[in-house]
């Protein structure tokens, strides 16, 4: 069934057992919404120099947006910023592929669990759900950096 290509086990697992959920101390906080469906996320990032110490979040939304936040947390926390940004770029590329990109080994290595979202890219209405937390994280990171600069 086609549905299984979207709702991979990995995704449902993350949905039911999210990583790093809950709001903790951070350098910047953002609130992002998906205006067409009402998915929402509040997200904080904590940086130590160029290292991502924590990404904490709270939100409501469908399995795809919730699982994506959990996977994102797993992928970026503990990483160097520029490394994490690269992961984000690859994920974005996958999600914008309209189902035409078959992830290869190199991509799988970068994306780990996030590669499970390949099937979601076939559903234009759901791509935004998968990207919501990533966009929030990018935005929060930019804010944290600019606040640091102006401080």
């Amino acid at each position: 069934m086609k549905l299984d290509s979207m709702y991979q086990e990995v995704i449902l697992d993350h949905y039911k057992h999210p990583h790093g959920r809950g709001l903790r101390d951070g350098d910047a906080e953002v609130h992002h919404v998906n205006p067409t469906c009402g998915d929402e996320i509040t997200l904080r990032v904590k940086l130590d120099g160029s290292k991502i110490v924590d990404v904490s979040y709270e939100g409501q939304g469908c399995s795809i947006s919730q699982a994506s936040a959990s996977v994102m947390n797993e992928l970026v926390v503990g990483r160097e910023l520029d490394e994490a940004m690269k992961v984000q770029e690859v994920f974005l590329e996958l999600m914008q592929s309209k189902g035409k990109l078959e992830p290869d080994d190199a991509m799988e290595e970068v994306l780990e669990d996030a590669v499970a979202f390949a099937g979601v890219s076939k559903y234009p209405a759901r791509v935004k759900c998968a990207l919501l937390s990533w966009m929030a994280w990018k935005d929060a990171t930019a804010q944290a950096l600019s606040e640091r600069e102006s401080a």
């Binding site: 549905l3 759901r126 759900c129």
Partner: peptide
């Protein structure tokens, strides 16, 4: 179950 997920499985 989020409505998005309900709608997706119904659509199928």
């Amino acid at each position: 179950i989020h409505p998005h997920d309900v709608g997706q499985v119904l659509d199928e």
